[in-house]
C-alpha cells in the first residue's frame, strides 16, 4: 500500500572538492499520514543530507531510489513545487536575507504557496493579523516581524522563526532538522508546542534530533536510527530513552 511518504532505496552523493562522496546508501522509510517520526543517529550519518534531498537541494545528485509524496514523484519536482505540494524544511542553520523584511518575506512565501495551491492570496492586513497571532503563540518579540529575515537573530530566535514560517505555510509534511539544537529548555518547550499544535490526521513530520529531550515534548510515533547513509533500526518512542542511555554502539554492531 502506498503511504503518505515513501522513500525506497534512496542513494545520493555530493561532489565535494572534485571528489564524489556517497552519503545516502539506500534509505528506506515510509511515513503514514498523521504520524510524527524521528530520526536519530551519529554525526555524519546522512540525516541532514536526507532532509536536503527531500527538499530538493541541487548540490546533491540522486543516483538511485525513489521518493513518492502523496502519490507524486517528489524527486522530479522543483524545490518550490515541493513547497507548494506541502513539504516544509525547518533549516538546521536558517539563512539570513539582509534588507528583506521578515513580514514581507513571510507574506510573499505564504502567497506564493497559496497561489500554487489554488487558494486566495492574503492581503497585507489579513496576513499581519495571522502572523502576529502566530508569533505571539511562539513567544516571539513583536519586532521580529519587522526585522530583516534572520539577520541579527539569536540562535533561538532563528529556530522560532522557522517554526513561525511552518505555522503560516501550513505544510502537510514538515522536516525539522535539529530544530532543538542550541535551544534552552523553555525555548525547546515553546518550539515543541508549536509543532504539536500542527499535529492532525493530515500533518506528518520527520524530526531529526540528537537529543531525547525534544522527543519528551514531541512524542513520535516511530523512531529510526540512521548510520552510514541507511536506516539501520526502527522502533517505538521508547527507543529514544534506550539510545540516550546506551548510545548507538549496539545498533551499529548489529548492522555491521
Amino acid at each position: 500500500m502506498t503511504q503518505f511518504l515513501d522513500i525506497a532505496g534512496l542513494c545520493a552523493r555530493i561532489d565535494a572538492d572534485g571528489q564524489e562522496k556517497e552519503i545516502l546508501r539506500g534509505v528506506d522509510l515510509s511515513i503514514p499520514p498523521g504520524e510524527v517520526h524521528a530520526i536519530m543517529g551519529p554525526n555524519g550519518s546522512g540525516k541532514s543530507t536526507l532532509s536536503y534531498v527531500l527538499a530538493g537541494r541541487e548540490d546533491y545528485e540522486v543516483t538511485a531510489g525513489s521518493v513518492t509524496f502523496q502519490g507524486q514523484d517528489l524527486l522530479a519536482m522543483e524545490p518550490e513545487e515541493r513547497a507548494a505540494a506541502g513539504l516544509f524544511l525547518a533549516f538546521q542553520s536558517p539563512i539570513e536575507l539582509p534588507g528583506v523584511n521578515n513580514a514581507n518575506f513571510l507574506r510573499t512565501a505564504v502567497n506564493a504557496v497559496r497561489r500554487a495551491r489554488g487558494q486566495e492570496e492574503l492581503d497585507a492586513v489579513a496576513f499581519l493579523k495571522t502572523a502576529r497571532e502566530a508569533s505571539k503563540a511562539l513567544s516571539m518579540a513583536p519586532d521580529m516581524l519587522k526585522r530583516n529575515v534572520n539577520v541579527g537573530f539569536s540562535g533561538g530566535e532563528k529556530k522560532r522563526n522557522e517554526v513561525l514560517q511552518m505555522t503560516l505555510l501550513q505544510p502537510s509534511f514538515a522536516i525539522l532538522d535539529e530544530t532543538d539544537s542550541g535551544l534552552d529548555v523553555d525555548a525547546l518547550r515553546i518550539v515543541a508546542e508549536g509543532v504539536n499544535r500542527l499535529r492532525s490526521p493530515s500533518f506528518s513530520a520527520l524530526v531529526i534530533t540528537h537529543h531525547q529531550r525534544l522527543l519528551d515534548y514531541l512524542v513520535p510515533d516511530r523512531i529510526h536510527v540512521m548510520a552510514k547513509g541507511r536506516i539501520i533500526h526502527s522502533g517505538g518512542p521508547e527507543l529514544a530513552k534506550q539510545i540516550d542511555s546506551e548510545g548507538y554502539t549496539r545498533f551499529l554492531a548489529e548492522a555491521a
Binding site: E58, E80, L89, E96, L97, G99
Partner: peptide
C-alpha cells in the same frame, strides 16, 4: 548565495522571485 536561493525556494518562491527579493533587499 546558493543557500539564500534554496532557502527562498523551499518556502515556495520561484527562483526569479527569490532573486528579486534578495536584490530588492540589497537595494532597500
Amino acid at each position: 548565495s546558493e543557500d539564500q536561493l534554496f532557502y527562498c525556494r523551499q518556502r515556495g518562491l520561484s527562483e526569479e522571485d527569490a532573486v528579486g527579493l534578495i536584490v530588492n533587499g540589497f537595494c532597500r
